[in-house]
């Protein structure tokens, strides 16, 4: 499923960048050794038997993908392009045992121990890692700069109106529980004297389905969920993002690496800069995802 390498940056600058990044990556592998689990930071108490301690082939990047993410194929394409920029073959392994059933989600639903084992054994870098909106990530992980920053948005169901003033008093606004955006909605509703009702959902699937069917009139929702639902559900094409009457956060999708992979992180950061400078928007369009 490798996609054509379409990058919009100028050929000259590309060649310069490739030379620089290739040397950086070679140094990274030489110094750290792929597959090393000596992360140097507090790690989960995982019995050593669970760790392979096998050095992966050093001439390629092994990415882990999150199969529970609605963006997994997009993430794979991003990983492939970043690897191409670094003149390295890419291999992809899917995380296992996620036990997640939210089709329009992005979360990684693994215990810290399981994540540690799989990242240690299966990959150099985990692509599709959502940076937490608040707090810190695991001590043994670090992240690149984000490669995609989709929004949370206020959206209306078909025929509801064009702005918040069109929303009738008592109308229901859906919201995903346990996302930072939900707290923004709650704060907004309080300032409005709770003129509208908030209904919580465990996943984006339910929000989009109820918006499309008219069961709820509005929702704060992760914008890619709308696009992806519309690709398969004709009713969802009637969902519209409206003018935002209050601020909502973006989700930062980045690449997570063990903390001993500093050089590789720097190389990926540089490649992400180039991707975001040219090529990302086309990739988003290919996958039907909203532009930032």
């Amino acid at each position: 499923m490798r996609r054509p390498f379409l990058i919009e940056c100028k050929r000259q600058s590309m060649l310069v960048m490739l030379r620089r990044l290739t040397s950086v990556v070679a140094l990274a592998f030489a110094l750290t050794g792929p597959g090393s689990s000596a992360f140097g930071q507090a790690t989960p108490a995982v019995p050593e038997d669970f760790l392979d301690h096998v050095r992966r082939s050093g001439d390629r990047i092994h990415f882990c993908l999150n199969p529970a993410s609605a963006l997994m194929e997009f993430d794979r394409a991003v990983g492939q392009r970043l690897a191409d920029m670094l003149l390295l073959p890419a291999e992809f392994n899917q995380l296992a045992n996620l036990n997640s059933h939210y089709g329009l989600d992005y979360r990684i639903t693994l215990t810290d121990s399981d994540l540690f084992i799989q990242v240690s054994n299966e990959c150099d870098a985990l692509i599709g890692f959502p940076n937490p909106a608040i707090g810190t990530i695991q001590e043994w992980l670090m992240t690149t700069q984000p490669y995609y920053k989709p929004r949370f948005v206020l959206a209306f169901g078909p025929g509801v109106g064009a702005g918040i003033d069109d929303l009738a008093a008592g109308a229901i606004i859906g919201s995903r529980v346990s996302v930072y955006a939900d707290s923004f909605l709650r704060a907004f509703l309080e300032t409005q004297g709770n003129r509208w009702q908030r209904r919580i959902y465990s996943g984006n699937d339910g929000i989009v389905a109820d918006l499309a069917s008219g069961a709820i009139q509005a929702a704060v929702v992760w914008e890619p969920a709308i696009n992806l639902a519309a690709a398969t559900d004709p009713l969802a094409t009637g969902i519209r993002v409206v003018d935002q009457p209050f601020a909502l956060p973006v989700l930062e999708l980045a690449i997570a690496l063990p903390t001993n992979q500093v050089f590789l992180r720097n190389a990926l950061d540089a490649a992400i800069t180039e991707l975001r400078r040219g090529g990302l928007n086309q990739l988003l369009a290919e996958f039907g995802l909203p532009a930032e």
């Binding site: 995982v46 036990n99 399981d114």
Partner: peptide
């Protein structure tokens, strides 16, 4: 016991 390869945590 032969456990399924998928759907269970490692530990």
């Amino acid at each position: 016991r032969e456990l399924p390869a998928e759907g269970l945590p490692s530990i």
